[in-house]
Computed example of a mutant assay.
Amino acid sequence: MKKYLVILGSLILTLSCQQKSEEKSSSVGYQGWLKGTSEEKFEEVAHQLGGFSRTMVEVGYRYSELYWAAMDENWGYADHQIEHIIEALEDGLKRRPERMESAESFMKETLPYMEDLIKQEDQETFLKGFQTLTSACNACHSKEGESDIMIQIPLNRTSPVRF
């Protein structure tokens, strides 16, 4: 019995020392930019990921690329963009779950509808659906009290990707 108490005591001491060493401040990343305790590092990483506004930057870029992919009839690239729009929104909604209610129909109806249109590989049909996508974007913004953010069909390409 005494042997087990010594082993248990050693284990507790070891775990306690490990926990204290984890609480020490340290630096990681390129040139040690990420500093602090484990908790402080996680907080900084969460801050770097940002909220939903960073999600919208990516979605906006991919929305534009989706449009131009269809104009080029590059359906593989269009499919790539819709997949990444979905992924970006899913990630953003993990960080800001309070936005899910506004995004629900967009995620469950609008984006699958666009995926189906892309599979048809018909530019005219796609363009009608793209108007629906644009309206759904604006409806979601309105639900979130962001009705001053009005999405419109892109006028200019910003990416060098061409088909």
Rank of each mutant, 00 (worst) to 15 (best):
P112Q: 02
S10W: 05
C17M: 11
F163I: 09
R96N: 10
Y61R: 11
T55S: 10
S105P: 11
M150A: 13
L49D: 14
C17Y: 07
L133W: 07
T134V: 09
F52D: 04
V59S: 00
Y61W: 07
I149H: 12
F163E: 13
L13R: 06
E146F: 09
P97S: 04
S21M: 11
M100P: 04
E121V: 02
M56I: 03
L13F: 14
S135Q: 14
I82L: 09
S64E: 05
G76M: 00
S102D: 12
G145R: 04
Q48C: 13
S142H: 13
A69M: 04
R62L: 04
W75V: 13
E121Q: 11
L89D: 05
S147A: 12
R96V: 14
T125Q: 15
P154N: 01
E104H: 02
S38I: 14
C140P: 03
Y30G: 06
T14W: 06
Q19V: 10
R157A: 07
V57N: 00
Y30S: 06
V59L: 06
S16N: 02
S53G: 01
Y77H: 09
Q120P: 09
L117V: 07
Q123K: 14
A46N: 09
Q48K: 11
L49A: 15
Y63K: 01
Y30T: 09
L89M: 00
A78N: 12
A46F: 03
K35L: 12
I82C: 06
Y4V: 15
S159G: 08
G36T: 05
V57P: 07
V6I: 13
E73V: 14
Q19D: 13
G29E: 15
T132E: 13
T37C: 06
E98H: 04
N74D: 14
E90Y: 05
R62Q: 07
M71A: 08
D116K: 12
M71I: 10
S38G: 15
L117Y: 08
L5F: 14
V57L: 15
L13Y: 02
M100Y: 14
H47A: 14
I86N: 05
E23M: 11
F52K: 06
E73P: 03
S16M: 01
E44R: 15
F106L: 03
G9K: 01
W75A: 11
N138C: 04
D72K: 11
